[in-house]
Design a protein around this nucleic acid. Structure first.
Lengths: 232, 232
DNA sequence: TAAACGTCTCTACAATGTAGACTTTAGGCG
DNA sequence: CGCCTAAAGTCTACATTGTAGAGACGTTTA
């Protein structure tokens, strides 16, 4: 999360191979992962690749498209098996995988969450829509009516994204200093106005995101199953 | 959502009153609401207020702080009554209120969701933390153990934010053209790869966000209540 | 070899955030 | 009333950004 760690080595200056969309996007992702979203400028990325910044426009129309490409790249790391007969297990696994993904690429999460807000559903990068399609498939194959599948998907994905945001928001850089840092921050809060929050400092400090996610998913899935049960 | 509607009138040129943080932030919010996040530049905001852009730095350290201020301003529109004895009803009402807020200020949602990711919990603008504190208070007063209250809060707020993101992502500008636009977008998708999604076009077109939210909340709250019941 | 095309580079420009010095205004004290 | 100080507002200047447009280069085809 700290935006200036592990600067990426500026280029393999000898190996000036032909560029490709893959290469450009991978470099962009590496840059974002290691130095944060703001570090992803055209010039900087060009420099990483040992190329003139202008060349990048051959592989992404503009900076926004580049960001979309990075989102897509990350989402492609997510494997979904739409043929699993146990839909609940599958959704639970996906949830954990997506959480891992988010923890692995925390700087990309704002993109995942924000970019779709400026692009109507039908015009998003295809890679971005694949999880939706596949989960629908999973649910429909499991016996849900298509419209119900959509409802399940929405509740599920909504909660999932929400959880990830929550968890990243409470994420603190150095896990050893967790509690200290946290207390430090909380100490700033006026005790009169924030007694509950301050009292919870220790609990906040050892947040088990995985367990929390799992519980929420359990509640949601069983609730959803009870309400809109697949006919299977 | 369309970023260039309703341009704000450039200033009341006669009435050059003394500025204040409130005034600046309100103008910023108005700008964001009417023309989108990108329109909020220092120069533009200065122009709206009939002042030199540099003057704004008296009221916000830098652009990021300005964005935080806008978030805070919006969240202040949310009323929470931590003394309501019926915690479930209260949480349900808050959920609907927050959803309304998001629909009223869609361009601010990315801020609400994104800014906290770059600020450790203890250092956020106080207005931003108030909902957390108050909901904790509500739950603890209702009989939850503090640690359980935190869990409930996390599941609840997680789902709530997730839902809002979902809903805004499916939001289409002109409600009359909803279906047409949507189909248009979806038509672009290769039928082989996205059969489910394409088939669901009509269902996607009449999304009832309020009902969907309410259902999800019901499931979550009753699930949570069953698992971690207040001793009351 | 010549032509044609896709790839990459160079130069240039308008827009942005913001530092630092200056000017103006408002209010308190003689 | 007249000054003085601090706050509020303004001006100028600069580094950094995205990206347009013209050209150079290299590789493949005729």
């Amino acid at each position: 999360m700290s935006p200036e760690e592990n600067p990426v080595p500026p280029a393999a200056p000898g190996a000036k191979k032909r560029l490709s969309r893959e290469i450009v996007l991978s470099a962009a992702l590496a840059l974002v992962d290691s130095e944060g979203l703001d570090a992803l400028t055209m010039r900087r990325l060009g420099q990483q690749l040992g190329r003139d910044p202008m060349g990048l426009y051959r592989y992404a129309e503009n900076r926004a498209a580049l960001l979309d490409g990075v989102s897509e790249l990350v989402l492609n790391e997510l494997a979904i098996f739409p043929d699993d007969p146990d839909w609940q297990a599958q959704l639970r696994r996906i949830a954990h995988d997506l959480r891992d993904l988010a923890l692995r690429h925390p700087n990309v999460v704002p993109l995942l969450v924000t970019r779709p807000l400026s692009t109507p559903l039908g015009l998003r990068p295809l890679g971005t829509l694949r999880p939706l399609e596949q989960i629908l498939s999973l649910l429909i194959d499991a016996g849900f009516a298509p419209a119900d599948a959509l409802h399940v998907y929405r509740a599920y994905y909504g909660y999932l994204y929400g959880h990830i945001l929550n968890e990243l928001q409470e994420f603190i850089v150095d896990p050893d200093e967790n509690e200290a840092l946290l207390r430090l921050g909380l100490h700033r809060l006026p005790p009169k106005d924030f007694p509950r929050l301050r009292a919870l400092a220790p609990v906040l400090a050892d947040y088990d995101g995985m367990a929390e996610l799992d519980e929420g998913i359990t509640i949601l899935l069983s609730g959803l199953a009870a309400r809109l049960s697949p006919e299977a």
